Simulated assay, not measured.
Amino acid sequence: MSELHIRDGGLDDPQVIDLLRLHAQGMLANSPAESCHFLDLSGLRTPDISFWSAWDGETLAGIGALKDLGGDAGEIKSMRTAPGRLRGGTGAAILSHILGAARAKGMKRLSLETGSGEAFEPAIALYRKFGFTDCGAFGDYPADDPFSRFMTRVL
């Protein structure tokens, strides 16, 4: 794998749109629709969202976003590694970039919601490696959804 280049944006790129579609399909394949909280293109274009795409040359390697929750808190959204790039460092590179961006924005806490099934274990392991720990529901997420898992870390 050559060096990844993380770019601001990319939501108009066909490769990004395809990966977001794959992300949505993956979430819906592993959790009921009412337990899926991914953002579509319009949700990622709002002013409170910063979105990045990671590239290996002209090939998309992964995506990730940061939602400003107000105050000094942020939320990781839409983390996805492209097929064929899994467990190759793409997720770690994007997560590192998001952590740096959150710090630069003055955020003191970063949280996330992910799924709770076996399909989500690699992502959970990555978040743990970066210091995230389990926490309760935050924001507007339902506290009693068995398909959601919440994690957080202080920056």
Rank of each mutant, 00 (worst) to 15 (best):
E113D: 09
H5P: 02
G74Y: 11
I98P: 00
A29I: 02
S148D: 06
L95K: 00
A24C: 06
Q15A: 15
F138R: 04
K108G: 14
T114K: 09
G136H: 09
L69A: 05
L110G: 01
G84V: 03
R85L: 02
V154K: 07
G62T: 10
K105G: 11
P146Y: 14
F138C: 01
A102Y: 08
L60Y: 07
A93L: 11
L126D: 08
L155P: 00
S78I: 05
M1A: 15
L4C: 07
F38W: 14
G57F: 12
G10I: 13
T152A: 14
Q25P: 00
Q25T: 07
M79R: 07
A61H: 09
P142C: 02
L22C: 07
K105I: 01
R45F: 14
D72E: 13
A93I: 04
A93N: 12
W55T: 01
A119T: 02
F120I: 00
K105R: 14
G88F: 09
I124Q: 15
D13A: 13
A29H: 08
H5K: 09
L28P: 11
P32L: 11
F150M: 03
V16H: 09
F38V: 05
D8A: 15
A123I: 00
A54T: 00
F147M: 06
L86G: 10
Y127W: 00
W52M: 01
M1H: 15
A102L: 05
E121N: 10
G89V: 01
G100F: 03
E3I: 03
Y127C: 02
A82V: 11
A123D: 03
L19K: 08
S35A: 08
L4H: 06
L11P: 05
D40I: 00
I49M: 13
L66M: 07
G71K: 07
K77W: 12
K129Q: 14
K105Y: 07
R21G: 13
G64Q: 03
S148N: 14
D12G: 12
A92M: 07
L41I: 14
T133V: 15
